[in-house]
């Protein structure tokens, strides 16, 4: 029975992946291709944040700095003649090193103190980018060259986003089942107890932050190459940090699939609702900000009733159905 369920899950996953891989082939240059890229990007950011915030329990409000560092590293290097593809891993490495730079002192802080410090790091980095005009273009930002065949170029980026998402998911799954992952879970539950059991909490947290920073940095790099224009207000904007937190919390913080689900809901619902309007009794309601109401309501409900998010809710529902089936099977038939 377990084997059948497992095979069913694998087949479902394969089906979804094949469907996603075929979207740009069927509808090349369509809006779904663009939406797909953004969704993969946000899934990556959500998974990356979950490594630090979900697995290790370190709530970071400054993750956007890695996104910005990645975006700027790629843009600056590309504009100075470095091959575009080579800038992608370099962007990840730069973000990881930046994570080491501020993670080393800040990760010694615990709980809300760490969170407050990350807000400071985020804002300080944005101001730095704003004022290093010769390097970053300052407030005017950096514009990247438009490729000759833009449709082919964007077609390629869809798959880059797709593979980045897959890679992030595999890394997250591997960590979850590793000694390192168990160490992170232990830190989340009780840092002192984890240290007493031999877990080097600071090293573990720094490593998790660097890994997370690498993925977010690569995401920032792809974003810059895809949008072809970046400025500090966008790639270091605080709202991006909030989004990175919101997605895993809605989906299920500390779980494998929660950040994926949260990011899909975040991106797709927002996109579909944003351009809709509702006609009720002669009044037209624009639903442009409606998604915020949906997220707000979801957040309140999740924090109150199911801290493991939508994934936790789905698991609870699944268990209830199983129990109901078992109970039904055990009832003796009469007559």
């Amino acid at each position: 029975m377990k084997g059948t369920v497992r095979t069913g899950r694998i087949l479902l996953l394969l089906g979804v992946l094949i469907f996603l891989a075929l979207i740009p082939v069927v509808g090349r240059g369509t809006y779904y291709q663009h939406l797909g890229f953004l969704t993969f990007l946000f899934i990556t950011l959500s998974i990356a944040w979950n490594l630090v915030g979900g697995y290790a329990g370190q709530i970071s409000f400054g993750h956007v700095v890695f996104f910005g560092i990645g975006a700027y590293t790629t843009s600056i290097l590309w504009l100075r003649g470095i091959p575009q593809l080579l800038t992608i891993p370099l962007a990840g490495v730069a973000a990881a090193l930046y994570g080491l730079l501020w993670g080393w002192p800040c990760l010694r802080l615990r709980g809300p103190y760490f969170s407050i410090a990350t807000i400071g790091v985020g804002e300080a980095t944005r101001l730095l980018a704003l004022n290093l005009e010769n390097l970053t273009g300052g407030a005017g930002g950096l514009t990247l060259p438009t490729p000759e065949d833009i449709r082919l170029y964007l077609f390629g980026f869809y798959y880059m986003g797709f593979f980045l998402m897959l890679g992030s998911l595999l890394i997250s799954a591997a960590i979850r089942n590793s000694r390192f992952g168990l160490g992170l879970f232990a830190i989340r539950m009780d840092e002192d107890a984890a240290e007493a059991l031999g877990v080097n909490a600071l090293s573990y947290k720094i490593l998790a932050l660097m890994l997370s920073a690498f993925l977010v940095g690569v995401g920032g790099s792809l974003y810059a190459q895809y949008i072809l224009y970046i400025d500090p207000g966008t790639v270091f904007g605080f709202s991006m940090s909030v989004n990175m937190i919101l997605m895993p919390i809605i989906g299920g913080i500390g779980t494998l699939w929660g950040p994926v689900l949260g990011a899909v809901i975040f991106t797709v619902i927002q996109d579909r609702i944003m351009t809709l309007s509702l006609n009720l009794w002669g009044f037209t309601f624009k639903l442009v900000q409606f998604h915020l109401l949906v997220y707000g309501a979801l957040l309140v409900l999740i924090i109150l009733f199911e801290p493991r998010g939508l994934v936790g809710l789905a698991e609870r529902a699944y268990r209830s159905v199983q129990r109901w089936r078992q109970a039904k099977a055990m009832v003796p038939t009469t007559g």
Binding site: A139, G141, T143, I227, L228, Y229
Partner: peptide
């Protein structure tokens, strides 16, 4: 300006 600079791409 910031929005126009971004979306004119």
């Amino acid at each position: 300006t910031p929005l126009i600079q971004a979306h004119t791409v």
